[in-house]
Design a protein around this nucleic acid. Structure first.
Lengths: 208, 208
DNA sequence: CCTCGGTTGTGAAATTTTTCACAAGTAATA
DNA sequence: TATTACTTGTGAAAAATTTCACAACCGAGG
């Protein structure tokens, strides 16, 4: 369960989980084949699985389905989670309009925005609410996770509202850097991904 | 320069760079204050700066502007880079419509899509081209970086086209996992960020 | 039943990364 | 100039993570 697996191991297992989702359960994969698919050395994969527990295998490798169930059991990925989105801009509405298809693991159940007009005008299957109702709605709808897609200056307050509603984890796409000791927060920033990328390219000659 | 700084250090320096960008150059920051802003322990920041080189400081800390210049010099973040976007869906067009404002570091100069209709209908300041022209356009426009926002099945081919055009780095938002030995590739997957988040929450009780 | 060609699982070594502790520096103030 | 109250920078210790190497396992085919 959660006897503190190394963070990197968790991250790799998530990656593996993803490719397994899109694969026939009967497929048999060696650690080497799997490694090619996710760009991870075979021995690292074996070590990860070894540290995480005991997974069934044969002399040909692992069955996709069994591996999937194993990771599933580890993190309980099977159970669906309720997710809300704060900020109905271009990015926020992209989550609402094309909900993530990950074996139904995540269900977007509500959207919030300070702009009442937007809420009324936008048509969506997902119910939309004004931002000030956030804490209450999160509580009454028993929402587990929040996606923040608001401008930087509103990010901190949005997080507070989500916390107040009792949310367990936040994925923050705003430019603000959020963090909290009580709940899990993950910051994702596009420009920064680009920047990190360029920092990793050794001989990038920059033109105009 | 690029005498292989630890990956994590690079990542943290990018984060620091981000907060510095939105700050008065004259602000003086101690490693502790800076640490609070980015959720990194003070000693880690000092160590990072120390392995990266020699940055000016006083008994009160670092001047934002000088720190910025230092990181800048390290990775040459000052020079603008030309970026293109493949796939003009909801996500792709969000890059084209609200270009990242990061001190003009990234300039979106072209968009590509297989759907010719979309290209003709959509109005945008950024020129849009059919996907099959990708390699040629990238070459002639001297584009440095590519953002992939196409469906999974088109991702691999898109990467090949970008490589063919001579691109240096790719930020991949498609569900496919891309990797290449010649160019830098970074995969970003929203559902997976959510999944990782939940995996890190120890006592997440999952309801319906 | 033995061997061959493949695989996993894992202790131990190697490496990387973080943390710690503290000498040394600096400005301000008396 | 001496003192105080901050700071940085960094070698060395500690911890975390990855890599390695190889015993053990498995199934198929003589």
């Amino acid at each position: 369960m959660s006897f503190q697996l190394p963070v990197q191991t968790v991250s790799r297992l998530c990656l593996i989980y993803r490719v397994l989702l899109g694969m026939d359960r009967e497929t048999v994969l060696s650690s080497a084949k799997l490694g090619k698919l996710v760009n991870i050395p075979a021995h690292t994969i074996r070590k990860d699985l070894s540290v995480a527990g005991k997974v069934k295998s044969s002399n040909a490798g692992y069955k996709a389905g069994e591996l999937l169930d194993f990771i599933n059991g580890l993190f309980n990925f099977g159970a669906p989670l309720r997710v809300c989105v704060a900020g109905i801009g271009l990015l926020g509405s992209s989550f609402i309009k094309n909900p993530v298809q990950e074996g139904g693991q995540f269900i977007i159940v509500a959207g919030f925005d300070t702009n009442i007009n937007k809420i009324e005008v936008m048509k969506s299957d997902v119910p939309l609410f004004p931002a000030y109702e956030m804490a209450d709605r999160i509580r009454e709808m028993r929402i587990d996770l929040g996606i923040i897609a608001v401008p930087a200056q509103a990010a901190e307050m949005t997080m507070q509202r989500m916390k107040e509603g009792g949310i367990k984890g936040i994925l923050n796409f705003s430019p603000a850097i959020l963090g909290d000791k009580d709940i899990a927060v993950r910051n994702v920033h596009f420009a920064e991904e680009l920047r990190f990328l360029t920092a990793m390219i050794p001989d990038l000659e920059k033109g105009v």
